[in-house]
Design a protein around this nucleic acid. Structure first.
Lengths: 184, 184
DNA sequence: CACCGTAGGTTCGTTCATTGAACCTTGAGT
DNA sequence: ACTCAAGGTTCAATGAACGAACCTACGGTG
């Protein structure tokens, strides 16, 4: 199944001499940026991505593998028996945060959505600016120091456990905690 | 051909409660961000997008129409006879510049490409920072004041006339000028 | 021991989007 | 009368995404 030959990848923006095109070859496919977003939000397990994104299983498996191969996620054994792996964002994924932040802002500002999440500097509580900087402190906040909490537009009782886990304020990169058994 | 019904669009990240997903519904399809990038670089005409991107005609037509419908490009008559239209980036497209800038930087930094283009503050010549700000002046440079010029990695004699037109230093948004007839 | 549940996949037939080549249209130029 | 350029549309073939079903390894329960 390996597509080892030359460079016949299906996603290539072949002749583009441009680092934007280069970036899109890696993260430009459908679902890919949402997988990375979830990883930064603290999602780590196959099943959690699955239910949170509503992505077809085969596509998720393909994306996780590609992202691992590109060094954007790291597959890591978190228990031996039964063997279970989680996917952890690497520096490369973390370096994408300002891009995701500014893309999200664009989406909300241009299409007048209600605010779904706040991102704050955990040290001072100030909401982040357009590219992830703290307006009060005057520097770009390290991703691990970003506090994520639900905004006024967020659904207060979502169906899937991952969305519920993301409702309580938490730092980015911090793994989510799924409630054990829920009585729905 | 109109897909007026409900919302059965093929690109929807249906259940995602997230402005990143919202943004990707609009600009997340293949080629779309590259079309917008070209528009910011000064490309305006159907044929110029076509040769510069190497995109299939049908896909280009579809993307231009969608982007126009979303208010990201504006279709504008630039001559009456024969009737010819150009596609001009709106504020919505311009607002996407920091995102594109940071995406491009990510691509170059993470994958160690040579620098293909410099973006400078036209007032002071300083190269822009990660999200389009001028490190010397301390503010985000208006897109119209960004000077684009080729970097060391750029092909000095590209095949298509659009790439050649993009070789000479110019401001973003400024329409490109194609050399009339070229003797290749 | 038989059975069920869970995590993390793979397989497969259907549907949908992308591709590239060919064709069409309007008006200008010669 | 022909040819050319710009800006498209149409169409058959290919490739990717979808979703349902299936598979595997292990643990726990009765």
């Amino acid at each position: 199944m390996a597509k080892v030959d030359g460079m016949a990848l299906g996603k290539d923006y072949a002749t583009q001499e441009c680092s934007i095109a280069r970036a899109l070859e890696v993260v430009g496919e459908r679902w890919t940026l949402l997988v990375i977003r979830d990883a930064l939000y603290g999602v780590r397990r196959y099943n959690d991505f699955l239910v949170h994104l509503g992505i077809p299983r085969a596509v998720l498996a393909a994306r996780l593998q590609a992202l691992t191969a590109e060094g954007i996620l790291e597959k890591r054994r978190y228990q031996e028996s039964p063997p279970r792996d989680e996917y952890v964002p690497t520096e490369r994924a973390i370096a994408l945060w300002p891009t995701l932040r500014s893309l999200g802002r664009w989406g909300r500002e241009q299409f007048g959505e209600p605010q779904l999440r706040y991102f704050r500097h955990v040290d001072c509580g100030t909401e982040l600016g357009p590219y992830g900087e703290c307006p009060a402190c005057g520097f770009v906040v390290p991703v691990a120091d970003v506090l994520m909490e639900p905004g006024p537009g967020a659904d207060p009782d979502p169906a899937d456990p991952v969305s519920r886990a993301l409702l309580k304020p938490k730092r980015l990169l911090q793994p989510i905690e799924i409630e054990a058994t829920r009585g729905r």
